[in-house]
Write a protein that binds this DNA or RNA. Sequence first.
DNA 1: AATATAATATGATAATTATCATAACTGGAA
DNA 2: TTCCAGTTATGATAATTATCATATTATATT
Lengths: 226, 226
Amino acid sequence: MNKCDQCIVRQLSSLKALNKDEVVKLANSKTTYKIKKGDAIFEEGEVTNGVFCIKDGVGKLSKLSANGKDQIVKLVQAGELLGQRSMISNEPANLSAKAVADMEVCFIPKSEILHFFNNNNQFSMNLMQSVCEDLKESENDKIALVQKTVKQRLAETLLHLHDTFGENEDKTLKVQLTREELAGIIGTATESCIRLLSDFNKLDLIELVGKKIMLKNIKALKKMAE
Amino acid sequence: MNKCDQCIVRQLSSLKALNKDEVVKLANSKTTYKIKKGDAIFEEGEVTNGVFCIKDGVGKLSKLSANGKDQIVKLVQAGELLGQRSMISNEPANLSAKAVADMEVCFIPKSEILHFFNNNNQFSMNLMQSVCEDLKESENDKIALVQKTVKQRLAETLLHLHDTFGENEDKTLKVQLTREELAGIIGTATESCIRLLSDFNKLDLIELVGKKIMLKNIKALKKMAE
DNA sequence: AATATAATATGATAATTATCATAACTGGAA
DNA sequence: TTCCAGTTATGATAATTATCATATTATATT
């Protein structure tokens, strides 16, 4: 009985195309790590030489700007692979990957992935599609950044977080981001983000439960985001 | 003697990995089109069922917003492939492709590309790397949109156009974009773009030769863009 | 060449968003 | 508990950018 076989990453990512033998090979070459909230999996400019499977937790891909702000490019969750792009491009990481919630990840060496890529057409197609999906999302984000106001982007992002990560028993968003991180996703100043959350609260679109956020009027948020 | 063999796209794109037999197959399945400046190669939402090789000219990938503005995601030139992403993702095009200068393109059916993808590891790796390159660029653009001012983005874009497309004998930029298109690339209002070009002109960073633009102080533009 | 149409230019103003300042709250460490 | 550091909150103001109005210039069409 090998551990990769039942792993959520095996079920959700490109790795689902691997056959029994390949999964065994995978299990033998992987290394498992635990990453504490706030810690980095890899930093911008580092050569990673492989990909990371996210078994548990939530991570963010971000880039630090000259003025010290951290622009978040993407949030990643259990089941996803990390570091595919720089591995394929043979380049140092363009972004840093840090844990937003405690994470458990496995590292798979590049040689292993390339072997699968060259010998398993379904795997290479899956990997390709996953990068294409990222590209589409990135392009759409880019367009939203230009064509939408900060208010619209906040509404959109709250809905997206709700869709992607779900809610706790108390109906608050499951991913717990700081206001600064949220601002980093929508691309605005932390104060602006806080201010708009206050506004949304007053308009009964959301409710602020301490630092947590509960979506109260999803319909109105959708209308605002469109 | 077959025509694809000497084609610039064959030399520059993922297609460089194809062997003689594959190029013959390619030549037999392709269709050639001429696209007039301003006309579309494909529109957002269309199912393309293949990729387009750009033999000559310049194109733009863009998305129309609700308020009627055309946000340009990427410019493409001779030697590049178009429509890879939606073909791989099995989705209608996310963006429209239109000619910025008269173009000559060849259409390669999806079945052909998939056959190469599954049978030629170097080709699939090249294709993958090309999508990864697009992803990296898109992510960096996204960050620039948030972290840089319109002025910085204009400087950056002018330099990028200069690098990528070169200059005419009179030193003006070779790609001739309207101010509206330029605004669509940097993500701002046309008037703002025009105003800043005026400012740059007064500061002797550029010179406006009718509708054409000549970069006069590249060093200063670089400093401004940083 | 004359006219129409579109592109470029510039001014005035409004809206959006960032920045700086400071206060209130929160969660953890001693 | 009490204090401290970090986060959240809000006000005041400045900077950036969009919008609307209107010239001016270029390009195309008859």
